[in-house]
């Protein structure tokens, strides 16, 4: 009998056992408000929200009226028990009624078209104030590269932008490019999505007016790890943003205690894909690691950036992100420890 219960318990737990380790992301995510399109903090998202609510109001009214009529008709004209079998009067149609229920939808559609067009032009044709920040967003299978051409900063997966206040706006303009296949840049609370398409330059803009971290991710199917091509936007007051930029422009401090780890990095395949300023590593295929430890997450948001997670990732990225294009490094335990110790100094 007890074995019976044990079997049931094991079967019931099977789905839970099938869950992967969440690498600390659950805790981190739950501290960030849900990325609802109805809680905008930036003008494009706000404009869309207003239009969305207007559209929902109209469609809800249509639903109540038509759905109500349908319900009424179904209840009122049901065949009642004991009724005779005579057929009801046959009505073949009515042109005035047809005219009425054609005209009213046409008018509703006309109103919607005009309001839609106005929002399209507001969002798609912005004026660019002098203080605007430019960022080149380059989407890769399955991570994001961010380059600030005016500031000389390169980072990955976590986009830092300054707070934009309404008196002296400092919006951020994003130039979107893809290194491989089609992707889509989407952070629901900041703006609608814009596709990132190879051989084509798209642009979008955001002007967040509430500081905080906003979650987003790739929204166009782009291959195996589309599901974990995550991104974060960190919106900071101007002073914090300037401090972050200054720190990013510093070369990483040299720490003699991790010289062996650095030597491993510079003498293995790492340098083919990664850049660390001030070293021999100038690869462009993977994320720039110069200030790796300044980022909250690794692997485009698959794990919190801790030493343990970093070790798992470098040992074999497929454990965290099956299909990731970075190969397992096949290092011995000692070398792996030293390498991770070196990476952990890249503040």
């Amino acid at each position: 009998m007890q074995r019976w219960w044990l079997t049931i318990a094991v079967i019931a737990c099977a789905p839970v056992a099938a869950l992967a380790n969440d690498w600390g992301m659950g805790d981190s995510n739950s501290k960030i408000p849900v990325s609802s399109i109805f809680s905008p903090v930036s003008t494009p998202a706000h404009e869309i929200n207003v239009l969305a609510l207007f559209t929902i109001a109209i469609t809800a009214a249509i639903f109540v009226i038509v759905g109500g009529l349908l319900t009424y008709a179904i209840v009122r004209f049901r065949r009642r028990p004991g009724e005779d079998d005579r057929e009801p009067p046959q009505v073949y149609g009515s042109n005035p009624i047809e005219f009425a229920w054609t005209t009213v939808p046409v008018l509703i559609v006309l109103v919607l078209i005009l309001t839609t067009a106005r929002t399209i032009y507001t969002v798609q044709a912005p004026t660019r104030p002098p203080g605007a920040i430019s960022v080149r967003v380059i989407a890769h299978q399955w991570w994001w590269e961010f380059r600030y051409p005016d500031l000389g900063v390169v980072t990955a997966n976590e986009l830092h932008v300054p707070l934009s206040d309404r008196q002296s706006p400092t919006p951020t303009f994003l130039d979107l490019e893809s290194a491989d296949v089609a992707h889509s840049f989407w952070v629901p609370r900041l703006a609608g999505k814009t596709d990132v398409i190879p051989n084509r330059k798209n642009t979008m803009w955001i002007d967040p007016h509430v500081a905080g971290t906003y979650l987003g991710q790739c929204a166009e199917y782009c291959g195996t790890e589309h599901g974990l091509m995550l991104l974060r936007v960190i919106v900071e007051p101007r002073a914090d943003f300037d401090r972050w930029v200054a720190a990013q422009k510093q070369p990483p401090a040299l720490d003699a205690s991790v010289a062996h780890g650095r030597q491993i990095f510079e003498s293995t395949a790492c340098v083919n894909c990664h850049t660390i300023q001030g070293t021999a590593a100038v690869g462009r295929f993977g994320p720039d690691l110069t200030h790796l430890m300044a980022r909250e997450t690794i692997g485009a948001g698959v794990a919190m950036n801790t030493r343990d997670h970093l070790r798992v990732w470098v040992d074999d990225p497929n454990v965290m992100k099956p299909g990731a294009l970075m190969p397992a490094m096949n290092l011995g335990d000692k070398d792996l420890d030293d390498l991770v110790a070196y990476l952990a100094t890249l503040h």
Binding site: I48, T55, T116, W186, P188
Partner: peptide
């Protein structure tokens, strides 16, 4: 709703 292009920028895909 999806035909309202800006709404679609949020909801497509």
């Amino acid at each position: 709703m999806l035909a309202v292009a800006p709404f679609d920028w949020q909801t497509t895909d």
